[in-house]
Write a protein that binds this DNA or RNA. Structure first.
Lengths: 148, 148
DNA sequence: CCCTATACTTGCAAGTTACAAATAAAAGAA
DNA sequence: TTCTTTTATTTGTAACTTGCAAGTATAGGG
């Protein structure tokens, strides 16, 4: 476990598993991608399709279909912008908001459970480290450019 | 960025992007899943199908097909065990070993680049924190059970 | 010699993805 | 105004991934 790559490989896989389990709420099973879409729509004010797609680094054509699915599930609505009818404004339905909140709670519970296996000092250090790592990745040229 | 969940959401997505870019080597494009399979085969001594599938928490039937693909790509071989003909022993071909090494190098370069945006103290703290986090996840009941 | 267990493979059927081409609205040029 | 270009989004298609159910083949216990 001395190798940097190995360390991150394990981390990546564990997160993958966490995300798989994360989003089964009230009988509805939500994929990680869908949960990220809900999250970003909730976070931004009157976002357009392209905006969210770019933010999540998802191909627009793929994103278009994902939104269609979320609309069919009754979690998202899409209405043409009044200013420019080419744009569609995305928003969460009541059920969508409920789902986003439920996922948030569920994920935080999972994370709390994981953090409960560390002492207070470790918890703080790990959180601070994740922030530092995120910032480093944001500055990096090799990845992660579109995210925030 | 105060929310634990948000912190990890961003981290997860950035890793996703990193993994997407990670594995285009010599014209051959390798998915994250395939790179993990190569990695695990390389790491273990005479592993069987089920062993690796379980390790990576991939459905055996899916894994069976992924191995077929990797065999077609000339990266993996599969030979029936002499002891028990139901088992297949997986191993990397010369090209597969080369690929695994190339991915390892490439990933480490990416990580070095990311780490270059931190000072020495931060680098050490972050690495130590990842280890702590991995251990916590290993102890956790909510995820990650099959990994190592 | 049968019966069950185990390792792995196929048959679907659904879902994801992305390139190319289409549609539709806005903006600029003539 | 009309023509052309740009921009936002959607569809056609085609390849790939995934997982359940059912199948094949080998091993081991009775």
């Amino acid at each position: 476990m001395e190798n940097k790559r190995e360390l991150f490989q394990v981390l990546t896989r564990r997160f993958g598993l966490l995300n798989k389990n994360c989003c089964a709420i009230g009988g509805i099973d939500i994929s990680a991608v869908h949960s990220h879409i809900l999250y970003e729509i909730d976070k931004h004010h009157e976002p357009t399709m392209q905006q969210i797609a770019e933010l999540l680094a998802i191909d627009v054509t793929t994103f278009s279909r994902q939104i269609q699915t979320l609309i069919k599930m009754g979690l998202v609505t899409k209405s043409p912008s009044l200013d420019d009818k080419r744009y569609y404004i995305l928003s969460l339905t009541t059920q969508g908001k409920f789902m986003a909140t439920a996922i948030e709670t569920s994920m935080n519970n999972y994370l709390d459970e994981i953090f409960s296996h560390m002492n207070e000092f470790e918890q703080e250090t790990v959180l601070r480290s994740i922030k530092v790592l995120n910032n480093a990745m944001a500055k990096s040229s090799v990845c992660c450019t579109p995210i925030i």
